[in-house]
Design a protein around this nucleic acid. Structure first.
Lengths: 218, 218
DNA sequence: TTAATTTTAGAACAAATGTACTATATTTGA
DNA sequence: TCAAATATAGTACATTTGTTCTAAAATTAA
């Protein structure tokens, strides 16, 4: 593997373990097994590493984000897309945990993210419409209600990892399953009987996303 | 005002403005108009300042937390308690924004917070039962569903400020109203017709928590 | 009043860190 | 093959920061 990749890998491990504020060019270079002079030759400073990893993650999430709310999406599709995305986000969890601090310095990342959230909002709205047409989701109970629901979905989607870090520490897959299950539950009261049957099948003990989520985490 | 209080005030302002990672004993002392030697005489380091402010916040939130889910609570009571708490959290927003980084160093705070979340969870469950008895809330649609809902409520309650910081920056009251409105909407699909009427009265343009939330924030 | 205590400012120092620079070593391409 | 380029290790330096120490100033209490 080439040096740039080894650096990124070491940076990712260390950012996740101790946060972007504690990791330095020297500590990351040590983890990668190279000199810090060499690291700075490839990446001027830690901010460049953060940005590179952000772009890496964005590139890996994009396919799922596209797929998620394409035409004819079903509740099962939403589950699957969220599951894949949750897994990826967890691999790059330092980005979500340190996001505010990072975007205070990297204005470009902040604006990129704001645009991304606007797109997500549209995708959610469109996805809801699709699910309604599939007969899995009901129309919104009050005017403008789905806008508010989406606000909550975005908060949960962006911050479950911070919550997990404080509540459970570094428990890997079990944590991902736990919060995926929780977020998906936000759909329940808006589902039609048909949608609810799909939900119950997916979350059943022998379903694709059931059972394993409920082991005690602490 | 005595020196200790002036220090805490300066620290709070600076933590909120630039984060706990950027503020130093020297910068805070400068903001308070004293020497850093003097600051260290009162508080050994920034961690002691963080802990002092955390305790200050905990003391100010406690009354609302108690009141929130006492016997015979109504939806209106829930709205009011959340409103008060949201306002207080916003004043100490650095704590929520930097919480993961902080608790990595201050194990005691982390454990205190974990216990607090356990209590909150019980309070929510009890509160739901109260609202059901008042005839404002329906029983859970699926077994264990309210546990999952509470997980989401806690994530939103603890992280709306981080989301606000990235999305809107420092917009004060308007931001608080915006996210309060969003979080309260999570109750909607579980409300009885009676509960829904209460909700609509509270969020009406001329209601206690209506209107003002919907000015554009960006 | 005056001695003890508390508070304050500032200096001093070591450790850490970002940044730049230098000198080899390695790889590439003609 | 061999010159040009790229990559690497290590050094050097200025800054920042936490921490400790000293001495002066202010306050307190007898």
């Amino acid at each position: 593997m080439n040096t740039k990749d080894r650096i990124l890998q070491a940076a990712l491990r260390q950012f996740n373990a101790i946060g972007t504020g504690q990791a330095t060019v020297r500590s990351i270079a040590a983890e990668a097994g190279i000199s810090h002079g060499n690291l700075c030759y490839h990446y001027k400073n830690t901010d460049e590493l953060i940005e590179a990893l952000y772009l890496q993650l964005a590139g890996r999430v994009a396919p799922y984000a596209q797929m998620a709310f394409s035409e004819g999406i079903s509740l099962e599709g939403v589950f699957g897309q969220a599951w894949q995305t949750f897994g990826l986000l967890y691999q790059y969890r330092f980005l979500l945990i340190d996001f505010v601090q990072i975007t205070r310095r990297l204005e470009r990342m902040k604006q990129n993210f704001q645009q991304l959230m606007d797109v997500r909002r549209q995708q959610f709205l469109y996805g809801f419409k699709q699910l309604e047409e599939q007969g899995e989701m009901k129309p919104e109970p009050l005017p403008g209600h789905y806008e508010l629901l989406i606000t909550n979905l975005l908060i949960v989607g962006n911050n479950w990892i911070s919550e997990a870090e404080v509540q459970f520490g570094d428990k890997g897959d079990a944590v991902v399953a736990h919060y995926h299950r929780a977020m998906m539950a936000l759909f329940v009261p808006y589902l039609t009987p048909k949608g609810l049957r799909a939900y119950q099948a997916l979350t059943a003990d022998d379903g694709a996303y059931g059972g394993k989520a409920d082991k005690p985490l602490r």
